[in-house]
Design a protein around this nucleic acid. Structure first.
Lengths: 185, 185
DNA sequence: CCTCTATGGAACATCAATGTTCCACTGGAG
DNA sequence: CTCCAGTGGAACATTGATGTTCCATAGAGG
């Protein structure tokens, strides 16, 4: 065990495996490590070299999701402006998470496992509470339902995007329109 | 192969296995046959006696889903009244599908495999087209998006119901409210 | 009470996925 | 050019799921 001096090659390979894992698992949560290795254009041996265990790989994907979610929360400025607007910004930002969205929504990986260090869930809760307080969110809907609607709409939008039959711009438009109509007071 | 004279016992056992399969697979799509047999309070041997193959079991569940969807379509009177109202009736009716909803939404079983004999998808498409024509559905949203929103909202509602933390009446209320707001013109 | 249906469990063969070890090779850094 | 870090593949042991066979028995229904 030398100190982890990550060379460029290792970083690149690791990223390729991680990306492939996200891509493949989003489509087939029970996919074998062999399938993931193939998708990453890497030998199964190499995959095991980087992630000895299936659990290790999943943990790494989960951690990656945590990071990305954290970035998303910052970019969306969830703590600024009216609650509804914050949620709409969150929609646009989170769409960039791509297949990670699928893994989170289908609970192939779990938000809780990231720890609450990311603070995304917290920030989302806050934005929802703010929106209910400032009158931009429909008070007849519970915080849990509001958040659930947000996630499921996001998942739907990403599904459409991935299918590729609808132009990205249209998908975003319909997503924002639907969420605004559904959640606004 | 005698003529399939299904005795009461056999019908009951078969149903128990099928129900358990739906329940277990909804929670864990990759569940083993042993888990399903346990959930059905039945030996694994017995399960294989009814469904020799895992594929056979899945096919039976799929067929069951087809029947239930067909019934739902009839009960919801999808071909009557304004399009939006038909969709709202469909929401209420489909909620009774329970875990089957999860299996369909997560594509553990596929609608297509039922054949189009059920006619549910067709009826839904028609209702959406009618709603766009009669001005009760938002013309800015594509038929695919309208249908997707319906399904994902249903899935969300069933998730809440299953969790059991929200009273059923409230869940239905929020579901109908959300769908109406999101989809109406 | 008797019979036959339906069942559960033990035992077994098979198979795919997993995780490990070892070795040969390749291409880029020095 | 020379090393060696990084890689791929073959081979192997292990494990869990699967599907099958066989047998003993419980219990519903006559």
């Amino acid at each position: 065990m030398t100190v982890e001096l990550e060379t460029g090659t290792r970083i690149r390979t690791r990223k390729a495996i991680l990306d492939a894992a996200v891509r493949v698992l989003a489509q087939e949560p029970g996919a074998s490590l062999g399938q993931i290795a193939d998708a990453a254009d890497v030998g199964r041996t190499t995959l095991h070299r980087y992630f000895p265990d299936r659990a290790d790989l999943l943990a790494a994907v989960t951690q990656e999701a945590g990071h990305r979610l954290g970035e998303a929360a910052v970019r969306a400025r969830l703590d600024e402006g009216p609650g509804l607007d914050a949620l709409l910004r969150a929609c646009q930002t989170c769409l960039t998470l791509g297949d990670l969205l699928t893994l989170l929504f289908t609970e192939t990986i779990s938000l809780e496992a990231c720890g609450d260090e990311d603070g995304f869930s917290r920030a989302l809760d806050d934005a929802i509470a703010r929106g209910l307080a400032d009158g931009t969110l429909d008070p007849r809907l519970s915080p849990a339902w509001l958040q659930g609607t947000l996630w499921s709409s996001l998942y739907l939008a990403w599904s459409e995007l991935r299918e590729g039959t609808t132009p990205p711009h249209d998908v975003v438009g319909q997503l924002l329109l639907t969420v605004r109509k559904a959640l606004s007071a």
